[in-house]
Lab assay of single mutants.
Amino acid sequence: QNEKLANELKSLLDELNVNELATGSLNTYYKRTIKISGQKAMYALKSKDFKKMSEAKYQLQKIYNEIDEA
């Protein structure tokens, strides 16, 4: 289960640069939040902690959705 979550989180991290570029014309909230979420996700992957990875995955998905809707 950890392996599956780690792969999903890696996949979301692969999209980080594209989504970060998409924040160029948006409010600074999005820029700041996506950077923080990305850092948390990288830390969670290194720690291999299921709870941290779950939270990081949720945060990344949430900010990606917010950027898409903005």
Rank of each mutant, 00 (worst) to 15 (best):
Q1R: 13
E3L: 08
E3M: 08
E3C: 11
E3A: 09
E3R: 08
K4N: 09
K4P: 03
K4A: 11
L5K: 01
L5M: 05
L5C: 15
L5W: 01
L5E: 02
A6E: 11
N7R: 13
N7W: 10
L9M: 01
K10P: 01
K10G: 03
K10S: 05
S11Q: 13
S11N: 11
S11H: 10
S11L: 12
S11P: 00
L12Y: 02
L13A: 01
L13W: 03
L13N: 00
L13Q: 00
D14Q: 14
D14T: 08
D14E: 11
D14P: 00
D14C: 12
D14K: 10
E15N: 11
E15Q: 15
L16N: 01
L16P: 00
L16A: 01
N17T: 13
N17F: 14
N17V: 13
V18I: 10
V18W: 11
N19V: 14
N19K: 15
N19S: 08
N19C: 14
N19Q: 11
E20S: 09
E20P: 06
E20L: 15
E20F: 14
L21M: 09
L21N: 06
A22F: 07
A22D: 04
T23Q: 05
G24Q: 15
S25Q: 09
S25F: 10
S25L: 09
S25V: 10
L26A: 04
L26P: 02
L26D: 03
T28S: 12
T28M: 12
T28F: 13
T28L: 13
T28P: 14
Y29C: 11
Y29D: 03
Y29M: 03
Y29W: 07
Y29F: 05
Y30V: 04
Y30H: 03
Y30C: 07
Y30N: 03
Y30P: 02
K31A: 10
K31N: 04
K31F: 07
K31L: 07
R32D: 11
R32F: 12
R32V: 13
I34F: 03
K35E: 09
K35W: 12
K35D: 05
I36A: 09
S37G: 05
S37R: 09
Q39V: 08
K40T: 07
A41M: 02
A41S: 02
A41K: 00
M42K: 12
M42D: 05
M42W: 11
Y43W: 12
A44L: 03
A44I: 02
K46C: 12
K46I: 12
K46F: 07
K46Y: 07
S47Y: 05
S47C: 09
S47E: 08
S47K: 06
S47M: 10
S47L: 11
S47F: 06
K48A: 06
K48E: 05
D49I: 03
D49E: 07
F50L: 06
F50N: 08
F50G: 06
K51D: 07
K51A: 10
K52R: 10
K52Q: 11
M53E: 01
M53R: 01
S54L: 14
S54H: 07
S54G: 05
S54A: 12
E55N: 06
E55F: 06
E55Y: 08
E55G: 04
E55C: 08
E55M: 07
A56K: 02
A56E: 01
A56V: 02
A56D: 00
A56H: 00
A56I: 03
K57C: 10
K57N: 03
K57P: 00
Y58F: 11
Q59A: 13
L60N: 00
L60K: 01
Q61T: 07
Q61L: 11
Q61S: 05
Q61M: 11
K62T: 05
K62A: 06
K62Y: 03
I63R: 00
I63T: 04
Y64T: 03
Y64R: 07
Y64W: 06
Y64D: 00
N65W: 12
N65S: 11
N65R: 15
N65A: 13
E66I: 06
E66L: 11
E66Y: 06
E66N: 04
E66C: 11
I67Y: 03
D68E: 13
D68Q: 15
D68P: 03
E69V: 11
E69N: 10
E69G: 08
E69W: 12
A70Q: 07
A70I: 06
A70K: 08
